[in-house]
Design a protein around this nucleic acid. Structure first.
Length: 262
DNA sequence: ATGGTAGGTCTCCTA
């Protein structure tokens, strides 16, 4: 069987309900993982999603901040969540498909403005969050698993619009890139987006603050699709749905897609 | 070097 999965930081699921439905209608991924829902689970507007065939949902929510959800046309089993770094934030949820594939949906802390944990607590929390992900995957090697989400790190030089200019900007500092690599290595995760699109600039996020985000194109690849090596060979067709960044009342992130033949 | 926009909630925090 073949299924297509997408991940999208939507920056408020309630405000963005129309364009979430637009994506579901036009692209029809079997599974859509959302981050920054900014909503308690019981206030996520599920009816419109259900009407489009997305009858299965697992989610973690809180008022105003964070929040992650997995919408699916395929049956899902709730596989729980973990409070990484004990922040008390809704930043992770997991679900299992009937074919035994585990899906982890993450919203890694952004980390504040200053890349120094001594003066910026949020940066320390981001590193702690990644360290616990690393430790969990090291202790219990994931199998037949897909990890997606807004990891808030652009690891490669061509994952940002200007590598040198961003070396001291949170999301692209060497300490973050190393922490992400350690997490990836600990679970033997394969970066599916870059497996499929190995060369050239690739972005999934453009700031709201740019005068013309499309023209300036000062993007970063913060949103990721990873898979364990036992299923990474089944992945293909990765793409970033850049046009969604230009839809009415857009998120500042674009959805990232991948297809798996399993 | 700086400030720029957006969302949620309750006056400012987070991204």
């Amino acid at each position: 069987m073949s299924f297509t999965l997408a991940t999208w930081n939507i920056n408020s699921v309630r405000l963005r309900e129309p364009i979430v439905c637009k994506l579901l209608e036009e692209e029809g991924p079997d599974v859509l993982c959302l981050q920054e829902c900014k909503s308690p689970v019981d206030k996520i507007p599920l009816e419109g999603f259900r009407a489009l065939g997305y009858e299965y949902i697992v989610a973690q929510g809180q008022k105003g901040y964070n929040g992650v959800a997995i919408l699916s046309k395929l049956p899902l089993k709730d596989a729980g969540s973990r409070d990484y770094a004990s922040l008390g934030h809704a930043r992770h949820v997991a679900a299992e498909l009937e074919n035994g594939v585990m899906i982890h949906n993450f919203y890694v802390p952004a980390g504040g403005d200053v890349p120094d944990r001594d003066v910026n607590e949020k940066f320390g929390q981001k590193l702690d969050y990644l360290a616990e992900m690393r430790d969990v995957f090291h202790a219990d090697a994931p199998k037949k698993s897909i990890l997606v989400g807004d990891l808030n790190i652009a690891p490669r030089e061509d994952d940002v619009w200007d590598h040198k200019k961003l070396l001291k900007v949170v999301s692209h500092t060497p300490v973050e890139v190393e922490a992400l690599a350690a997490t990836q290595d600990a679970g033997r995760w394969v970066d599916i987006t870059r497996q499929d699109i190995p060369l050239g600039p690739l972005y999934s996020w453009w700031s709201y603050r740019a005068r013309d985000w499309d023209d300036a194109d000062k993007g970063r690849r913060l949103d990721h699709v990873w898979a364990t090596s036992d299923i990474s060979g089944a992945a293909h067709g990765s793409r970033i749905h850049r046009v969604a960044r230009g839809w009415e009342k857009p998120s500042d992130h674009a959805p990232v897609f991948a297809t798996f033949d399993l």
